[in-house]
Amino acid sequence: MKEKTFIKTRNVILTGVGGQGNVMASRTLAHMLVDAGYVVTIGETFGMSQRGGSVMSHLRISHDSVKSPQIPRGGADVIVGLEPLEALRVLTVYGNPQVCVLYNSRPVYPIGVITGELSYPSGETIRDAFERLSAACWEIDATSVGLRLGNPVLSNIVMIGALSKTGLLPFDRRRFEKEIKKTLSAGKYKVNLKAFDAGADMIK
């Protein structure tokens, strides 16, 4: 049954760039938590808004009731960024001194940066900002792990593995296994589990 690791509603934002598997990651996470007995509300943007643009899923994990599918500004407890700039963008709207952040270090450059009109902050600048503006933060190179496992999009599962290890949300490997057993084919199941474990190993 459900583990009482937090009292109030826990607000999680998963963010990235269209095509990074943000929606799949947030649904996997949500299904595990519903399975664990929580009332979960997810708010997502997809459709045209995901063509190369910023994407965001808001997850509200409550003990008892449905919540607004949009988290109020300054109201995130956890930010999971599949892309560093997007994690930072979310932090500047939904962050607060207690927020915890886990992010993938691999940038995806916006068109304005590619054309040279805009500039992308350095890894150092981003890291500094997270350190100043969060209570705890973890940076991992999830994309490289995904590439090593044969598909960069697996980085979303690497992130979920890492997230399990941070202890910020009440789920573990057993729950993840149970969830993907329902939804994935045998071949995909194995590589997803590998990605999960690789992610968990990256959090000390």
Binding site: R51, G53, E86, P110, I111, G112
Partner: peptide, 8 residues
């Protein structure tokens, strides 16, 4: 410091 990300 954060550049916008336009749809494309």
């Amino acid at each position: 410091l954060i550049p916008v990300r336009e749809q494309t």
